Amino acid sequence: MEIATFETKCHCGYTFDLPELSDMSYGEFLYFDSSGNGARYLCAINNQTWEYISTIIDSELKDTSLTKGIIIRNTLGEIADKININTTYVQKGVCPKCNSFVNSNTEIKKGIMEVEEMSFKQFQKYTDSEKRRIVTEFIKL
């Protein structure tokens, strides 16, 4: 997926291009590797993994009206296929130099970046009971 990038400056002084979705991106999300090594794109609309986690949350939690979407997004960041096994995906930009969270400056557009779609191949290999156990661990945190 091609996504516009914007100049971003971290508090450490490092300047880099950070992809940013438009305000019109309903049901679309960007995740960033917590070590600053890359971004992944997720479209939640008709996404089987999103819907699977949603079903588990509905059966495990009583009142999810205010937090369900956040719980799903956080869980997806944990179970997604990783660039680096020792990291996770977060929904905040991460400086590739110092690994601090950053906010993009959407005033200075720099270009276009190809961002790979987030995948869940490893998660899909598990049995249903293993998937439920994994997701339940994350939603109980």
Score class of each variant (00 low, 15 high):
Met1Tyr: 04
Met1Gly: 08
Met1Trp: 02
Phe6Gly: 06
Glu7Val: 05
Thr8Asp: 05
Cys10His: 07
Cys12His: 08
Thr15Glu: 11
Thr15Asp: 08
Phe16Val: 01
Asp17Lys: 06
Leu18Phe: 00
Leu18Gly: 00
Pro19Val: 01
Glu20Trp: 01
Glu20Gly: 01
Asp23Lys: 00
Asp23Met: 00
Met24Arg: 00
Met24Phe: 00
Tyr26Ser: 00
Leu30Lys: 02
Leu30Tyr: 02
Tyr31Lys: 02
Phe32Ala: 02
Phe32Val: 01
Phe32Lys: 01
Ser35His: 07
Gly36Met: 03
Gly38Pro: 04
Ala39Leu: 04
Ala39Thr: 02
Ala39Val: 02
Arg40Cys: 12
Arg40Glu: 09
Cys43Leu: 09
Ala44Trp: 09
Asn46Glu: 12
Asn46Leu: 13
Thr49Leu: 14
Glu51Cys: 10
Thr55Gln: 14
Ile57Gly: 11
Asp58Gln: 04
Asp63Gly: 09
Thr64Ile: 14
Ser65Val: 12
Leu66Val: 00
Thr67Met: 12
Thr67Pro: 00
Gly69Leu: 07
Gly69Ser: 11
Arg73Ser: 11
Leu76Asn: 08
Leu76Trp: 08
Gly77Tyr: 09
Asp81Asn: 10
Asn84Met: 07
Ile85Trp: 06
Thr87Leu: 04
Val90Phe: 00
Gly93Trp: 03
Phe101Pro: 01
Val102Tyr: 02
Asn103Phe: 03
Asn105Cys: 05
Asn105Met: 06
Ile108Trp: 02
Ile108Thr: 05
Lys109His: 07
Ile112Val: 14
Glu114Ile: 14
Val115Lys: 09
Glu116Trp: 07
Ser119Glu: 13
Phe120Arg: 04
Gln122Val: 05
Lys125Asp: 15
Thr127Arg: 10
Lys131Phe: 05
Arg132Ala: 03
Val135Tyr: 11
Thr136Ser: 15
Thr136Leu: 13
Lys140Ala: 15
Leu141Gly: 14
Leu141Ser: 14
